[in-house]
Computed example of a mutant assay.
Amino acid sequence: MSFDLQLKGLRALVTGGTKGVGAAVVQGLSDAGVEVITTARSEPKNPIEGVVYVAADLLTAEGAAEVTGSVLKRWGGIDILVNVLGGSSAPGGGFAALDDAQWLKELNQNLMPAVRLDRALLPAMLAQGSGVIVHVSSIQRLLPLPESTTAYASAKAALSTYSKALSKEVTPKGVRVLRVSPGWVETDASVALAQRLASQAGTDYEGGRQIIMQSLGGIPLGRPAKPQEVADLITFLVSPRAGSISGSEHLIDGGTVPTV
C-alpha cells in the first residue's frame, strides 16, 4: 500500500521556520511537495531551495500584516498554516519575578501571532471550503514548572483553549484545526541549555540531559524528541490522509505527561 501523503502542490505558511522544530517542519513539507513560505526575524544562512523566506517580526501586528500580505499577494489563499513560533524569556524565581511586562511578553510571543495570522488567512480557507491549521503548544500547559515556566505555560494554555474554540467554529466549514504539544525537544537551543547545566553541575552533556529530564519528572522513553519527529507528526496531520482528525491535541513527549 502506498503511503503518499497527497500533499504535492498545496500551499503552506510555517512560522518560526528557520530554527528547531520550525525548520524541520519546513523541510518536511517541502520534501512532501508542498509550496512553502516561512518567516522569522531574519533569513537563514542556508535556505532550503524552493522555500520563500519573509523576514518579519510576528510579535507585532505590523509584522503579522506584512507576512499575511505576502502570502495573499503570492497565492491569493492558503491550504496549510503551521504556527510554530513561540518560546520564553521570562526569568526564573516564581510568580514574584513576573511583572505585567513579562506576562504580556509571553502572551504576545505564544498566543497573539497565531491569533493574528489565523484571523487574516482563515477567510481564504473558508472561501475555498478547505484548509488545515496547526498550533504548536507545549506539555508545559499541563505540567508547568513554577520556578521558571508559569507565564509560558499559561500562554500555551491560552493558545490551546483558543485553538479548541476555533476548531469548533470552523471545522463544520471545512477547515481542520489541531494542536501539537511537544515535550522536551532536542533543538540547538536545548542542546545549549543542557551544556550550560552540565557545566554548572560539573558533569558532561549526558549529565545535563538528565538534569533536564529529571526537572520534567522523567521521560519514560529515556530521551527527548528530535525536531524531525515532531515535524513528521505535523506533516502527517496536515495531510489529507489525516482528514478526519480535527479539534484534537497530539502530545509528542516520550511519555512525560503521566496522566491520561
Score class of each variant (00 low, 15 high):
240 P>K: 03
184 W>D: 12
179 R>W: 01
45 K>H: 12
189 A>C: 01
8 K>C: 03
129 G>C: 04
153 A>K: 06
73 K>H: 13
252 I>L: 14
48 I>S: 06
152 Y>A: 03
178 L>D: 00
203 T>R: 07
72 L>R: 01
96 A>Q: 13
31 D>Y: 09
125 M>L: 12
160 S>D: 13
93 G>Y: 11
237 L>S: 08
105 K>E: 08
7 L>F: 12
220 P>F: 06
177 V>W: 09
215 S>L: 09
39 T>S: 13
225 A>Y: 03
246 S>A: 15
247 G>V: 05
71 V>R: 01
44 P>V: 07
56 A>N: 08
16 G>V: 04
45 K>S: 15
254 G>A: 10
259 T>D: 10
16 G>P: 00
241 R>A: 15
19 K>A: 12
20 G>L: 10
204 D>W: 09
136 V>I: 15
19 K>F: 11
257 V>T: 07
258 P>T: 08
124 A>P: 11
31 D>V: 12
61 A>G: 12
225 A>F: 01
240 P>A: 03
248 S>R: 13
95 F>Y: 10
238 V>R: 05
46 N>L: 10
234 I>S: 02
13 L>R: 05
58 L>D: 02
218 G>L: 11
112 M>F: 15
191 V>R: 15
152 Y>E: 04
108 N>V: 00
206 E>P: 02
106 E>I: 00
208 G>W: 06
253 D>Y: 02
172 P>H: 13
136 V>D: 00
126 L>S: 00
52 V>K: 14
170 V>P: 11
59 L>Q: 15
156 K>N: 04
143 L>A: 07
163 S>L: 09
242 A>R: 05
175 V>F: 10
236 F>W: 14
122 L>D: 06
188 D>P: 12
151 A>C: 09
115 V>I: 14
182 P>M: 06
157 A>K: 05
104 L>H: 11
231 A>D: 01
223 R>Q: 01
62 E>M: 03
117 L>P: 00
247 G>Q: 11
158 A>F: 03
138 S>E: 05
88 S>R: 05
217 G>M: 07
81 L>W: 05
253 D>G: 11
48 I>M: 12
70 S>R: 14
3 F>H: 13
55 A>G: 11
215 S>D: 11
95 F>V: 15
164 K>A: 13
135 H>C: 13
215 S>R: 13
79 D>T: 14
167 S>T: 07
44 P>R: 04
95 F>E: 10
101 A>M: 02
189 A>H: 02
80 I>P: 06
1 M>S: 15
185 V>W: 08
133 I>M: 13
46 N>G: 07
135 H>I: 01
12 A>I: 06
184 W>Y: 08
9 G>H: 10
51 V>N: 08
207 G>N: 07
255 G>Q: 10
116 R>V: 11
24 A>P: 08
187 T>E: 05
211 I>S: 02
45 K>V: 13
161 T>N: 14
12 A>E: 01
240 P>Y: 03
149 T>V: 08
125 M>K: 05
237 L>W: 09
104 L>A: 14
16 G>K: 04
124 A>T: 14
68 T>G: 04
127 A>W: 09
110 N>T: 01
